[in-house]
């Protein structure tokens, strides 16, 4: 009997690798800070999916991975809050959030 695709570890690892690749591509390609933030969220999601899949298929205690992924989600939410406030502060000073134009440091 064939094993269904949703019962195989490699499928989930492949999806996570695709999400990581898409996130890195977006991080390099994007020219605005919000686009880079979105790509960063994709990378976070890839890591969370990896942890959850490995937890489901190779760990004796299934609750460890869930708690870990919950912590990853909390940290991602904190990162978005800080990142967006920095973006808004930068926009207020430079009237732009394109990463080429915001290239001076002070202080």
């Amino acid at each position: 009997m064939m094993i269904a695709a949703h019962d195989q570890l490699a499928v989930y690892l492949g999806i996570a690798a695709f999400l990581l690749a898409a996130g890195i591509y977006g991080l390099i390609r994007r020219r605005t800070f919000i686009g880079m933030l979105i790509a960063g969220e994709l990378i976070f999601s890839a890591a969370a999916l990896n942890v959850m899949a490995l937890n489901r298929f190779t760990s004796p205690d299934p609750s460890v991975g869930q708690i870990f992924v919950l912590f990853i989600m909390g940290l991602a939410a904190a990162e978005v809050a800080i990142g967006l406030s920095i973006i808004i502060a930068v926009y207020r000073n430079y009237r732009s959030i394109h990463s080429k134009e915001v290239s001076e440091l002070e202080g």
């Binding site: 020219r31 605005t32 919000i34 686009g35 967006l84 926009y91 959030i97």
Partner: peptide, 10 residues
């Protein structure tokens, strides 16, 4: 954040 700034890609 998008509404508070003008983030469209060039």
């Amino acid at each position: 954040g998008v509404m508070l700034s003008e983030p469209d890609e060039p």
